[in-house]
Design a binder for these strands. Structure first.
Lengths: 336, 336
DNA sequence: ACCACATGCTGAATCGAATCAGCACAGTGT
DNA sequence: ACACTGTGCTGATTCGATTCAGCATGTGGT
């Protein structure tokens, strides 16, 4: 309950000795269409400042049907370890455009998602960013049809929606390039996409193979497992006990890499002397490991910010943005 | 731009053959004060359903001065590793009370914080939750005076504000109790609060000492350092090289414990055979370490949810809530 | 002296719901 | 036949801004 003294446009107009109309035009900067004398303009602005006038947003929204508010709906963004910085980026971009972010986390529950979208549309948000934790293919929720929306970290090939994605294929090339530059030839990959709709792993693989191919190398082998620390550990240990060896290991995310580190340590293999490791995410975890992990960083804040900017850009008419990844160098790749 | 067909109360009233007034009273459940015949009520509700009537929130807000929206402002919550689940909890609680969360992250910048608070108050949020990443003492921002607010994970002893905190002292007792139960006597603590305003470390120490005292034990020693992996590693290594030894080590958070694990491993000490480790946070990281870390879990989602519930409870008149922590057992404490 | 035109402003309607004050009608008691 | 009470509803106003349509006044040309 905001107990602000209620200074209305009427008060400002009265104090400046003009009509509400005039005051409104001046304060909204439409003076060009209105022909206002400099003197009047100064008086109105002065009055607004003196009274600390703040327009009532509800009243304004009622007329203009805009709220200076964007919705951000996601499955797991807020409570997630890494992706949450998408929220930060979105929030910053929104503020720069004088908007606030209304957040909704569905936890993956379609019914809750429907409710949240409905609540946002009811509140006349100026648009909705629909984000997913993992990059994947989705169906645009029915509640968003006819609503201005941008997909963030996901895509719907069947819908005509603006869409912001990380360039996972380029990221794959970057990861492979790190190993190639170190002169490594025998490269394995840990953790290819388990989920059918997920796109990140597949695209990264394309990039990895392409970049290795440039050096005349093929991927020596792939260990498939879930993208968690535990699975990374178990899969790597299995691989090692089966006699698996490599010069370089590309892990699909930092958690997998942590699991791999553990299994490698247990087997007495040292990073990077015995084996080089590169991964994806560029999360804080990468910098916590010893040696620090060389990781291809996902630009989460930029992704979030870009989605909001596109959402609020009236000249944006769809299409997919592919945001480049970058390497965060650690000490997990052998120096040539 | 939500392009919803605009069904107004007027449309519903017309279809039901009643006045707007009647329709309004029925749909808002004030029928008790109004005496409405069951027949009319059914007709109005039917019409609302048929037309898929959704009240215009802006119009409603203009009259009622309420928006069914709560502000959540914080320094780092969104982009943070662990605390972000406060947001999740807040968002869920808000939805249960038919509200949405408007988020603002200041990044610790007081000017941005001021702006965000102003924007929220301008938009007539029904209240503001003011959260900090680390539990500490703060000054209620000037913009929140006179605004309904709840402090989350922080407190201002000089202000009369509702306040939701984790029970760090109780948490300290839980941590110590784990070691006492394992029959350990020689206990060190790693990482006491570096920041002057921070309260978590101090309170946990009080709890730790109290619980140990019950068993007739005193803290054998304290290693002071920042609450990061790097510092935890360095401090523990220094301590070990200086001949430091203990049966049990209490780390002030999971990251510190990770650093300690690394230093202990380097020194050839095994957890929990040579030394038992307990920490605070109960973050995902605790479950990633090998052996899994026994950690006193901070109930972030509950904290966030409680803050929102209190904010929206008209009968809540201030005071401090202390939410209990709980032990997430791992394998880092020696079995007796 | 008269018209044309630019200048600088205002009145009133509008957005959609909430709500106060009160009205028409039916039934009951005397 | 009359007042009285209860039932079930409605008209009109209000919240605070935006915006369309138009009205005085002054200025210059002929």
């Amino acid at each position: 309950m905001a107990l602000r003294r209620s200074v209305t446009l009427e008060d400002v107009a009265r104090r400046a000795g003009v009509s509400r109309t005039t005051a409104s035009y001046i304060l909204n900067g439409h003076s060009a269409q209105m022909r206002i004398s400099p003197d009047t303009e100064a008086r109105v602005r002065g009055a607004a400042t003196d009274l600390d006038y703040r327009p009532n947003r509800s009243a304004r929204s009622l007329r203009t049907r805009r709220t200076a508010t964007v919705g951000l709906i996601s499955d797991q963004i807020a409570g997630e370890q890494y992706g949450s910085s998408m929220l930060t980026g979105a929030s910053i971009a929104a503020r720069e455009l004088d908007h606030l972010v209304v957040m909704g986390e569905s936890g993956g529950d379609p019914e809750l998602e429907r409710l949240l979208i409905e609540e946002m549309v009811d509140r006349h948000v100026d648009g909705v960013v629909y984000a997913t934790r993992t990059a994947r293919t989705i169906r645009l929720p029915a509640g968003l049809r006819g609503v201005r929306a941008v997909l963030l970290n996901c895509e719907d090939p069947t819908a005509q929606v603006a869409c912001v994605l990380p360039d996972d294929e380029g990221g794959g090339r970057l990861a492979a390039a790190e190993l190639v530059a170190a002169g490594l030839v025998h490269v394995w990959v840990l953790g290819v996409d388990p989920v059918p709709d997920a796109t990140a792993g597949r695209r990264r693989m394309v990039g990895i193979r392409a970049e290795l191919a440039l050096a005349g190398i093929a991927v020596a082998g792939v260990v498939d497992c879930d993208w968690t620390v535990g699975e990374g550990f178990a899969a790597t240990r299995d691989w090692l006990t089966r006699g698996g060896r490599a010069e370089g290991l590309i892990c699909m995310n930092d958690r997998l890499a942590m699991g791999a580190y553990q299994a490698l340590a247990e087997a007495g293999l040292r990073v990077p002397d015995d084996i080089s490791v590169v991964s994806f995410d560029g999360s804080a975890l990468a910098s916590w490991l010893r040696p620090e992990l060389t990781s291809v960083e996902l630009p989460f804040p930029e992704l979030g910010a870009l989605a909001v900017r596109r959402l609020l850009d009236p000249d944006d008419h769809g299409g997919t943005d592919s945001v480049p990844l970058s390497v965060r160098a650690g000490g997990s790749v052998r120096r040539r």
